[in-house]
Computed example of a mutant assay.
Amino acid sequence: MKKINEISTLCGVEACAIISEQNNPRVEVWPSDSGVRSVISRFRSLPGYEQCKKMVDQEVFLKQSIGKVYEQLKKQREETRKMEMTNIIDHYIQTIEFNGNSMSKSDLNDFSSFIDENLKEVNLKMKEMTIKDQKEVGNGVGL
């Protein structure tokens, strides 16, 4: 009952609770019998589409929750991958500088060009893989 009160207060929503146990004939209500009747009465006075607008069953709720967690995981994987790539580049630069070969402006320009060229190759390979995947799915291989 305490949690229902907290949620109602914090979220600024009208709420009620009816709690019954299988082996206990006594039913608990919150905030009171008249409070429960009032909330239910207001709910029933809403048009049908308003009553159902935000209702979900357990299956839908779990699917929505899983979808949200999946998106968070996807974002976290992308961030982790970016950090890995940054660490690889940083390690390469530090290795060059540690070996007494500090990078000049010219070296950094060459390094940037090297990365750009490799990026073009990576993008080309990705396009080739995408085309290959599309062909496989079209032929039923990817099913």
Rank of each mutant, 00 (worst) to 15 (best):
E6K: 00
R44D: 14
C16M: 05
S41L: 10
I66D: 14
S41T: 15
M83G: 00
G35L: 05
N23S: 07
E14N: 10
E79Q: 14
Q94A: 13
Y92W: 14
I4R: 00
I18Y: 13
Q22F: 06
V69E: 04
F111T: 11
R44V: 02
S113V: 05
V27L: 05
I93H: 07
K125M: 09
L10G: 11
Q58P: 00
E50Q: 04
A17N: 02
I7D: 08
E117Q: 02
V60G: 12
V141S: 02
M129F: 13
N24Q: 12
P31S: 00
I88A: 15
T130D: 08
N101F: 01
L119V: 04
E128Y: 04
V29R: 06
F43I: 09
G35N: 09
R44P: 02
G140N: 01
E6C: 05
R81D: 07
N87G: 05
G140I: 08
K53C: 12
Q58D: 09
E128K: 08
K3W: 02
T80W: 03
E136T: 05
K54Q: 06
Y70C: 01
V56H: 05
R44E: 12
N139E: 04
P25D: 12
T95L: 02
Q22E: 14
V13C: 09
D107R: 12
L143R: 05
E117S: 12
K135Q: 06
E59L: 13
R81T: 01
I40L: 04
A15F: 09
V29T: 11
K127D: 00
G12V: 13
Y70S: 13
S20R: 02
S112L: 07
D90C: 09
R26E: 15
E21D: 12
S106Y: 15
V29M: 09
I4P: 12
